[in-house]
């Protein structure tokens, strides 16, 4: 009984402000005749119409697929490259200016080059997302590989661990916290790249939906698109957080113990 009560208060503490804000939006926008701020009630009505399920399947799903595949490709490429560069310091040092340059490239400045090479279809969108997510993860992976504790390296050498076992049980797990930190940055950049590529690329997807609604002055539809985008961005981040919590459970325990010892 008291436990449920505690859970309820905990949830209430986190939710009261968001709920209040949405309520305020509802109340303030009710009866609004402003072009830009249509009543929230109207938006929610249209939301149900539009997104269950026609545009969910036509626009939201393709967007998510592009995001997941682009981010996935970027992640895989970055980790493999990062393991190589992290293990060969001379190569890493030589290529550092190039990598820094790639990371500094704002995704929007990439669009002309990508569109020139790959057109405006899915390829361009997915590869742009992959490209954007690669560099922050790559740099962090290198950092992570370098930060492997020298004592553990000696353990690996002393117990004659083979190359594969060293990578699988030592280097990759040790670099994982850093890899995830990079991936979190990369994820939000991927979402931006997804929206950008869809705005300039071939029709379809959430970015296109929002921009197209605006062009046709269907502001209510545009608002529903924004809400969907917000939900997807939030869901992506939460999913990522869950995966991170699972993979890095050891890390939290480990650092906590270290802090306690201090």
């Amino acid at each position: 009984m008291s436990r449920t009560l505690r859970v309820v208060t905990a949830v209430a503490r986190e939710l009261w402000l968001p709920v209040l804000l949405v309520a305020a939006w509802w109340w303030l926008s009710a009866g609004s005749t402003s072009l830009y701020w249509p009543p929230l009630a109207e938006i929610t009505d249209r939301f149900v119409d539009l997104w269950f399920f026609e545009h969910l399947v036509e626009d939201a799903l393709p967007s998510v697929i592009r995001l997941v595949s682009g981010f996935g490709i970027g992640f895989a490429v970055a980790v493999v490259l990062g393991l190589v560069l992290g293990s060969v310091p001379a190569l890493e040092d030589a290529t550092r200016p190039l990598v820094e340059f790639m990371r500094a490239l704002p995704s929007v400045a990439l669009l002309p080059i990508m569109m020139l090479l790959l057109g405006t279809d899915d390829d361009m969108k997915v590869i742009t997302i992959a490209f954007v997510s690669t560099w922050p993860i790559l740099l962090n992976t290198v950092e992570g590989v370098r930060s492997v504790d020298p004592v553990l390296r000696q353990v690996a050498a002393g117990y004659r661990l083979g190359a594969w076992h060293r990578i699988r049980y030592l280097v990759v797990p040790a670099a994982m916290p850093q890899i995830f930190a990079g991936a979190r940055v990369a994820l939000s950049m991927s979402v931006v790249a997804m929206v950008l590529t869809e705005m300039v690329g071939s029709p379809g997807g959430l970015g296109y939906f929002v921009l197209d609604s605006q062009r046709t002055f269907d502001i209510v539809a545009m608002w529903t698109g924004l809400i969907v985008l917000g939900l997807i961005g939030y869901a992506a981040n939460k999913t990522f957080g869950l995966v991170e919590a699972r993979v890095l459970a050891w890390h939290r325990g480990h650092t906590k113990q270290k802090e306690d010892q201090r």
Partner: peptide, 20 residues
């Protein structure tokens, strides 16, 4: 109280607000 709003704010791609 602001946890959820901050989480939401930082992940929502603000670029999508550009049309508005």
């Amino acid at each position: 109280s602001t946890q959820l709003i901050l989480d939401f704010g930082r992940t929502v791609p603000a670029i999508a607000l550009l049309p508005l």
